[in-house]
Simulated assay, not measured.
Amino acid sequence: MPRARRSSEPVERPADLDPAIPFPPMEAELVRDLPDGAEWQYEPKWDGFRGLLENASGQLRLWSRNARPLLRYFPELQPLGELLPPRSCLDGEIVIVRDGVLDFDAMQTRLHPADSRVRKLSAEIPASFVAFDVLLWDGEEHWPETLADRRATLERVASRCTLSPATPDRDEALEWLSSFEAIGLDGVIAKRRDEPYRAGERTAVVKVKPEKTADCVVAGVRWKSDGQRRIATLLLGLFDDDGALDYVGSSAVAPARHDEIADAVLPLLDNAPERRFSEPNRWGGGELEEAAVRPELVVEVRYDKVQGRRFRHGTKLLRLRPDKDPSQCTWRELRPPLAPGDPLLERLLRPSPTRD
C-alpha cells in the first residue's frame, strides 16, 4: 500500500520513467485569493489522487506524485490505454463519484493489498481519471510549451478522455468556489497560461480553498492532562434526520479563551447524557479523558474539509452562538443541498466534445 510522503522527503523519479516525461508533477501554492489577469486559467480542485498516466515504457502505468504505481489499485482504468498513442503522458486526478458527489473515503479504501479485494472494489466503486494537462503525446514533448498551448492540444488530441473544465473567467471561478462544496470539490486551481510545465515546482500554480464555517453543538469536552480539569478541546456534534446527535470532530480551546469557554460549557456537565466519542484524538495530546455535556450550546467553527462523517482535520473555534437553537445544527451545515443553477458533477466529468 502506498505510504504518504512527508513534505520534507525528496521524491525519487521512477527508474524506468521515460526521460521525456517531467517528474514529479507540478504542485500548487495555497493562497487566500484567486489571482486576476489574462495570464491565468482556472480549474476545479479535484479531491482524489493525483496521477501521471503514461505508456512510454510500452505498457500503461499510473504514477502517484510520490512515484508509487497506482494502476494496480485501479484496474478499471486500464482501458484508457486504448485512447493514448505510443509514448504519451497525461497529468490528472483519479476520483470516485458516488451519489453524484466526490467520495474521498472510497478512494482510500481502494488502496488494498489483496488482489481479490482490489478486483471487488473496482467493480463496486469504480474510479475515473480526469485529465487536465498533456505532457507527451505520440512521442512529441508538450510540457515545454505554455499552458495555453498545452490546453489547446489536450482538447484536440485527448477529446475522448474525461477532461477537467477550465475557464479564463475569474468571475466564473469565484462562482465555483461558492457552489462546488455541495458536490465534493475542494476549491479552485489557478494556473499561469504563459508558463511551461514546471515539474515539482509551485511557481506557476496556486490553489484557493473556500473558507467554510459551520455551527455545531458542543457534545462533550476533552480535559487537559495537567490534572486541573481544564478544557483541551470541545467535541462537536450535528443532528441527523432522525434527531440523533452525531459526533463530527473537535476544536481546540486556546488558553486565552479558556475561561470564557469554561463558563459556558462546564455547567452543561450536570445531568449530561451517556455518550461515547468513537474517534480518537488524532491531533495530539494522547488519550485524553473525555466527558459528555448536555447538547445545549452552539459554537461556530472554521473547517477545511469533511471526510465521511468527520471533519478531515481539526477545526478552529470562532465564537459562541448563544443566539442559535441547537436543533438547527444539522448535516446541512456540512452538506448543503444543490441550489438551482449549481454545476452538476456528472456534467463536469463528461468527456470533452470532439473538436473538428
Rank of each mutant, 00 (worst) to 15 (best):
V31C: 00
A264L: 13
R192N: 12
P351Q: 06
V97L: 05
S116L: 09
S122N: 15
R230D: 14
P25R: 05
V205K: 12
A252I: 08
E43P: 10
L30N: 00
E145A: 07
W137H: 12
A4G: 05
I183G: 05
V118T: 12
R193K: 15
W40M: 10
E181M: 06
K316P: 01
A114G: 02
R229E: 07
E9A: 14
D103P: 07
P144I: 10
W137A: 08
A339K: 14
G220H: 11
Q228D: 15
T109G: 03
L147R: 04
R160H: 01
S278G: 12
V11L: 05
R310S: 14
I261F: 13
E124C: 02
A190K: 10
K45T: 07
E346R: 14
A252Y: 08
V217C: 03
E287F: 10
L334P: 08
P79N: 08
D342Y: 06
S250C: 07
L318W: 03
D325W: 05
D215C: 11
H142L: 14
R150S: 02
Q228V: 00
E201L: 13
L185R: 09
M107F: 04
G227Q: 06
T167E: 01
S64A: 02
F180E: 09
L235D: 07
L269K: 13
E175L: 12
I21Q: 06
D342V: 05
R13T: 13
R193I: 02
A148M: 04
I261N: 07
P86F: 06
R257I: 00
L174W: 07
F311S: 05
V293S: 04
S251T: 14
